[in-house]
Amino acid sequence: MTTQPRHIEIDGVPATDPALIAALMTGFGHFTAMQVRDGRVKGLDLHLARLDRSTRELFGRELDGKRIRELIGGALEAAGVRDASVRVYVYPGVRVAVTVAPPAPDGPGAPQRLTTVEYWRPAPHIKHLGGFGQSYHREAAVRAGWDEAALISPYGEIAEGAVTNIAFWDGTSLVWPSAPCLEGITMALLETRLESVRRPVTLAGLSGYRAALVTNSRSIAPVTAIDEVTFAVDEELMGRVYSAYDSVEPEAL
């Protein structure tokens, strides 16, 4: 059992709330990330459910969705914006932090080239704070000239991207890897609006797919390469995917 520090300084300045800073420094917790437009969010109910579900699992307590709406609304008002990239973090003691940053660009994302790394996130069903491994591999991929890392098992089974979900087009359905992964909100919204299946996806079987794409809270983008396997951008498919996402009615905070 750990005890809370009695005194914390940041850049030589004593923290005004040492208990809060100590909670933030644990590295234990979870979060969700969303795009807000005119005070509205696509899949807001899914974000709130994710936060509550993970809070119950990690801290044994429920998290009131109404409170989270109020905290996000207050942060947006304090920042003087209605369009933003917002993150909601939950820490020990169910301390909630909200960050407000400039919104991601609207519209289709730029084509992505991925390289594979042998790594699966621990407790992948939780959008947790222990993201060093995936961040490490993604930064290494970017330094090597790629756009993203695809996380695979030692046996070549694909799970997800470092900060994305990935789907493949077999000519009939979007195929989402069935390996353990974080089920992103954008993925969940698309999966219910397009013909979709989940099944194992392996490196050895990539050549059997016609196209691929990645999704997260910031964008939906076609994939043009995974290692040495290349994919053409299927404009018709991407148009259907963007249309499906655009059809999602955003919810007011």
Rank of each mutant, 00 (worst) to 15 (best):
R69I: 14
I72Q: 00
I72P: 04
G74N: 11
A75R: 02
L76N: 07
E77I: 01
E77P: 11
E77N: 11
V81H: 09
V81N: 12
S85H: 15
V86A: 12
R87T: 15
V88I: 09
Y89C: 01
Y91N: 05
P92L: 08
P92I: 02
G93K: 04
R95E: 15
R95G: 03
V96E: 04
V96T: 09
A97H: 13
V100F: 15
P103Y: 13
D106I: 02
D106R: 04
D106G: 06
P108S: 09
G109K: 02
G109W: 15
A110L: 10
A110G: 01
R113T: 00
L114P: 12
L114Y: 13
T115R: 04
T115G: 05
T115Q: 11
T116W: 15
T116G: 03
V117E: 09
V117L: 10
E118N: 03
E118Q: 13
P122M: 11
P122K: 08
P122N: 11
A123P: 01
P124S: 06
I126L: 15
L129H: 13
L129K: 04
L129I: 03
G130C: 09
G131E: 09
F132Q: 07
Q134W: 07
S135A: 14
R138C: 10
A141G: 05
A141V: 06
A141S: 08
A141H: 11
R143K: 10
R143S: 10
G145I: 10
D147Y: 10
A149D: 07
A150R: 00
A150L: 15
I152K: 00
P154Q: 07
P154V: 13
Y155L: 15
Y155P: 02
E157H: 03
A159E: 07
A159G: 08
E160F: 13
A162R: 03
A162E: 07
A162G: 14
V163T: 14
T164G: 14
